[in-house]
């Protein structure tokens, strides 16, 4: 300490400035981030436990929870398989158009969920590309579970891939090449060599993907048709209750998703301690994740 004291403090380290800045940031954080979380709990329980329990046990709310969980159970595993496949193809091989493919995978990040929903309408809706054919075949995609799943898969398409790609890029191909040259099959190589190295990043991507699928509002709102007790996911059900002036019910339903958000944050912190999530900075495109390989 004594030797350090001879140096001037770092920029911005004067005690007065430091304390003032920390205090200011804490106050704004409390107003801006903590208060929204707290108000959900307060509003949900504003009329007591009994009302809360009744609101949660309402058949429409239970159905919305079921639909949200079902959507996640379908969309997240498919998305995960896609993310792993995309990361394997992009990081373990060189092929023409690789960088372009990366940008395309990340496109959903930059697109408004409403645009995504409208776009799906023009594929599967009656006024869309396949709508008339689907109707004559009596296949229901829009305003039903398949549409909700598809829209959820659109908005979360980059989630798993973007966690894996920077990591697998950094890890290189040597281990896999060694395994296959020793006679291991492709699947064996993946499960015994690659997967143990990427498991935390994979789980990290899955956790974030799941949170987004369960919370998606805009895109799902367009394609679901908002049929109460049928195609209302939990976020849509919250909107419906809220506009019905059932505030306690809306906040009770919202509290479930708020708990999910908190659990997601805790999982995120725990996984980051294991080294996941370090590769990816917030991004609209994957430009920086794969440096141009020089041949």
């Amino acid at each position: 300490m004594a030797s350090k004291n001879r140096k001037p403090p770092r920029v911005g380290d004067q005690p007065g400035f430091r304390r003032a800045l920390i205090a200011a940031v804490l106050v704004v954080t409390a107003i801006f981030i903590v208060a929204p979380l707290v108000v959900i709990g307060v509003q949900a329980f504003s009329q007591g436990w009994a009302v809360y329990a009744t609101a949660i046990a309402d058949p429409d709310t239970l159905h919305a929870i079921l639909l949200t969980v079902t959507t996640a159970l379908i969309a997240v595993p498919i998305n995960t398989a896609f993310g792993v496949a995309a990361a394997w193809a992009i990081t373990k091989f060189d092929f023409w158009g690789r960088r372009f493919l990366l940008v395309v995978i990340e496109i959903p990040f930059s697109i408004s969920p409403i645009v995504a929903g409208v776009a799906y309408l023009f594929v599967y809706g009656l006024q869309g590309l396949f709508g008339p054919a689907l109707q004559s075949a009596d296949i229901k995609i829009l305003f039903a579970l398949p549409g909700i799943v598809l829209a959820s898969m659109f908005v979360t398409a980059p989630f798993v891939a973007r966690e894996l790609i920077p990591l697998m890029q950094a890890q290189g191909r040597d281990l896999e090449e060694a395994a296959t040259s020793l006679g291991a099959s492709g699947w064996r190589t993946f499960f015994s060599v690659t997967l143990p190295n990427i498991r935390w990043a994979l789980l990290y991507g899955v956790v974030l993907c799941n949170a987004r699928v369960m919370g998606e509002f805009g895109a799902v709102s367009v394609v679901s048709g908002n049929i109460r007790g049928q195609t209302n996911t939990l976020p849509l059900h919250i909107e419906l209750l809220y506009h019905d002036y059932q505030t306690a019910g809306a906040f009770a339903a919202a509290s479930i998703l708020a708990v999910l958000a908190v659990v997601t944050l805790v999982a995120k912190v725990l996984l980051e301690r294991r080294g996941a999530g370090r590769g990816g900075r917030p991004t609209l495109a994957a430009n920086q994740t794969v440096p141009e390989t020089t041949t």
Binding site: I33, P36, I40, F217, P235, E239, L257
Partner: peptide, 13 residues
């Protein structure tokens, strides 16, 4: 939190 909290929940909060 803003990433993890569903937008509709953030909206009503």
């Amino acid at each position: 939190l803003p990433f993890a909290l569903p937008t509709a929940v953030a909206g009503i909060a």
